[in-house]
């Protein structure tokens, strides 16, 4: 480990201790992230070799996040909105530690359960039951923790009679319902949801809405969505990201207005 890494780690630890003393769940400080996008077919050794010979870099730097800072308080329901490609999903992946930031820091106080996509790792050849445990393990839950949540997940998904069926025999609606139930029943301190609200039929939607309302004040949630009605309905506070920067922050009504203005 490099000295700078060690220093960073120490800083992170200190930040985490500070966060624990207050009621801050997530603290994001000056976050920068860029990606190297291949300009041509730089895939494969041959192309990499010729590119080097010709002095071509073979990639273009795309700055996705440019200095994002915000805080999420414990029990707060935060909405993140923005156009396609504005950097919302990248931000979530940085919070979930899937990506490493170029600059800046993320400190998370508590366990974080990320749903960048529903049903990650779902395998059509496994039964519903096996998929729940696999998905749980991927999210960092032990089998005994999953045992406790299992019944609730199945009940919420309304799939009691299908748990020993292989997932490939489920309808697509049943699959999302199962995935979504794991997402909202998985008990972490912080829940991250990316564009995953509109699942199931009207009755299931209703149930999900009620559930989200019941979370209010008890659970820290970060929700990325394009549905402004949901932002106003559920969120305590919202953030608008445009071109890698926070351009508006505050009450949901104010932020959704700013979001609408992006097109006018």
């Amino acid at each position: 480990m490099k000295w700078s890494d060690r220093y960073l780690k120490k800083m992170k630890k200190q930040a985490a201790i500070e966060a624990a003393n207050t009621n801050v769940a997530i603290k994001v400080d000056g976050l920068y992230k860029s990606f190297k996008l291949p300009t041509e077919r730089a895939w494969g050794l041959k192309q990499a070799f010729f590119n080097r010979l010709k002095g071509i870099k073979g990639f273009r730097k795309q700055e996705v996040l440019r200095g994002i800072s915000f805080e999420v308080k414990r029990g707060e329901f935060l909405g993140i909105v923005g156009r396609n490609g504005s950097g919302k999903s990248t931000l979530l992946k940085l919070l979930a530690e899937i990506y490493v930031p170029d600059k800046g820091s993320v400190s998370v106080n508590g366990t974080l359960v990320p749903f960048i996509e529903l049903g990650v790792g779902f395998n059509p050849e496994l039964t519903g039951r096996e998929n729940i445990y696999l998905n749980g393990a991927l999210l960092g839950f032990s089998n005994s923790e999953m045992d406790k949540m299992y019944d609730e997940i199945v009940r919420f998904a309304e799939l009691e009679d299908f748990m020993d069926q292989k997932l490939k025999n489920y309808s697509s609606g049943m699959q999302v319902r199962l995935a979504f139930s794991i997402a909202i029943r998985a008990r972490g301190d912080i829940l991250i949801l990316d564009e995953v609200l509109a699942v199931g039929d009207a009755a299931f939607q209703e149930k999900c809405n009620d559930y989200f309302k019941s979370l209010h004040g008890n659970q820290t949630v970060i929700l990325v969505t394009h549905d402004m009605a949901n932002v106003e309905r559920f969120c305590d506070r919202a953030i608008l990201i445009d071109d890698g920067k926070i351009t508006c922050e505050g009450k949901p009504s104010k932020v959704t207005k700013a979001y609408m203005k992006l097109w006018n």
């Binding site: 979930a96 530690e97 899937i98 990320p114 960048i116 996509e117 990650v120 790792g121 991927l138 960092g140």
Partner: peptide, 8 residues
């Protein structure tokens, strides 16, 4: 697919 969506 897992590595892109979950941290472990």
């Amino acid at each position: 697919d897992l590595i892109r969506k979950i941290s472990f």
